[in-house]
Design a protein around this nucleic acid. Structure first.
Lengths: 205, 205, 205, 205
DNA sequence: TCCTAAGCGAGACGGTACGTCTTGTCTTCCA
DNA sequence: TGGAAGACAAGACGTACCGTCTCGCTTAGGA
């Protein structure tokens, strides 16, 4: 049993090496330019070993990103409830922009198509889904009559957020986090709120 | 000179065959799954001939898309000036959604990452640029004091437009063109106008 | 180490398959007409595998011939010292003609230019070198004063031997081995011996 | 008719350009390394033009060599009858060695396999044939009883001559023409004469 | 002087082989 | 059992020649 645990630890180490190598290499030459052999070589592992743990370069990428974003998700999940609504310096959006600023190169690659065939899409879908849950519950709770389905609003929201991030990162973050978050909210929240049938006072997000 | 023309025609025909074949095949198996040999075989040409005209699959793709979008650009360019401002059934945005509806499968591929490494980005950049020119001239003409640079507004606009298109197409166009255009404007125009310092009456776009 | 041995065996088998396939195919369509894919297909191997072991068709050819001629060299090397001098039924020349008769088709290809760019030359050079060593030691041992350098005599000897072989093979071996060897010696040995300054009694080769 | 002649002249000029270009290029990179496009480019002609006159690189080569060797043949044919027998400074063999010395680079390529697949063989066959006619007539005239067929003697003679030429050229002609011719005769004539049943006094060749 | 046929250039095209690269599978061994 | 090493098949890639073809220009002769 102990041995089992040791082996697990060893496997975990190998996987981490692979993930780290992939990340480094993506930053250096873009996802498509990275070869599986590149990865294993950088990770000081045999090429066969890769196939022992992952089916694809894609699969490794997913698993690698989960590692990065689990951190972000944990931050957001663990913050006090009252920070999560309205505009403030600790809200989820601020955290996201902050996280993006800290991992600028990675985000630049992910949000542009460089990541992988459908990586940016995957991120978009994830954000959309979270926003949709939020919007739906908001509508349900306040019993408004939205002009557009929450799924559309959520999709719009996700698209807006991502273009904003792209612009900010590709122009080398010309505003501080708080400022760009403020602009983002100014640009999209009014439209979304009124489309969802919310009054000005109810735009608490 | 005559000969030049004949050769041109022959080459043009060959290129068209290649472009058509590529498009068909992308729709069938997605860009990455298409082989150069697939293309030439479908086009009834020798594989070598491909390299006579294009360096890459990428290069052929670009050239193919130019053909498709030249048509769209021509439509927009040739429409009466008064249609280009304000909300109406013939405005540029309507034309774009209309064009997307007519080429739904193609757009789905382009806007998602399926197209190619950075194809959606290319489209985004183009739309952004056009919007930026428009916003800049608007600001200059009306002498407003925008809170955000036109480049940011343009980027936001392009991102919004594209997410809207994606949602519409991926949900099988649940609204008629006019309706979705109306929603799009409702969602984003207010925010952009106020960020650019325009009054409600000046939101003629 | 054991593993080394096993892998070696596998590789050796693959190489042998390739060599055999090449030989068969050369006999069928001549060296230049044989494609690498022909070889690998005949050998039931993937084309890539070829390049794992050989750089060229040329390189495979060389390696193949070494296999064939190592056998011949072994025969000559292992024969009793007294057979190696003078005219007799077991001498080196007899062995060579015998070997040629047994591998007639192969020799026909090698000695004519069909083999490869400079294959016959390679054989010639080898024979020349061996002869030169022999002639030089003969001259040194007997302290004769040759009229021509041993290198010339050796070259002449090699050329004579090879034309004799060609004639014999291309005329479908009209004489038995002993007879043609006798003729060969009759034609060239007198001239060489006197050119090297040897007396009739010293012509022991 | 006159026109015919002019066109012929033009064609002849084109052919000569092609032949010259081929020769130059063979000397530079060896026959196999020369491309048809190389030839036509060097000759300042279009690639198509090549195929107007020759089927192959091979065909052009043959035609080119005929041009070179026609000169040699003419020299030998036009010399006085008495020079053609016995050892003297003007005999056919001397002329051959002389010609080889004057075209050393070319000969080196031809005699080694560099020329083309079977070029050296072609030369050998030609020499063999000439020698065989000569030997046969000698035997008939003198009514000797040869131990070996004239065809074998001729083959042997041709092979000897060619190896001698190769050695001489590849060692940068260490002897003057007369000397090497003398050595050549010393090496092979005795053997041949006795094999053909000629007495010492009859060895007039 | 025109005109006309041949020589020729340009270059598109199909086809075949090449050598390289990457992927994924498999087998054998070692720690 | 995890991992290293590496042979192998499969298949796409981009390149290099080849030989064929079509088209149009040029030019020198004969009308």
């Amino acid at each position: 049993m102990k041995r089992q645990r040791r082996e697990d630890r060893r496997v975990a180490r190998t996987k981490r090496q692979l993930r780290d190598a992939l990340m480094e290499l993506i930053l250096e030459k873009g996802y498509d330019g990275v070869t599986i052999e590149d990865v294993t070589e950088r990770a000081d592992l045999g090429r066969t070993t890769f196939y022992l743990h992952y089916k694809d370069k894609e699969e490794l990428l997913i698993s690698s990103l989960e590692a990065v974003f689990d951190e972000l998700a944990a931050q957001i999940m663990s913050m006090p409830q009252e920070w999560r609504l309205g505009e403030n310096d600790h809200g989820p959006i601020s955290v996201v922009f902050q996280h993006a600023a800290e991992n600028a190169t990675l985000y630049r690659i992910l949000l542009r198509g460089q990541g992988s065939v459908a990586l940016a899409d995957r991120v978009r879908d994830y954000v959309t889904e979270r926003a949709q849950v939020f919007f739906s519950s908001l509508v349900a709770e306040l019993q408004t009559t939205p002009e557009i389905p929450p799924s559309l609003a959520a999709n719009y929201y996700a698209g807006s957020l991502m273009s904003m991030l792209i612009w900010w990162l590709e122009n080398d973050m010309p505003y501080p986090t708080q400022k760009i978050v403020h602009h983002f909210r100014a640009l999209c929240i009014g439209g979304i709120a009124s489309a969802l049938g919310l009054s000005a006072a109810q735009m608490k997000f």
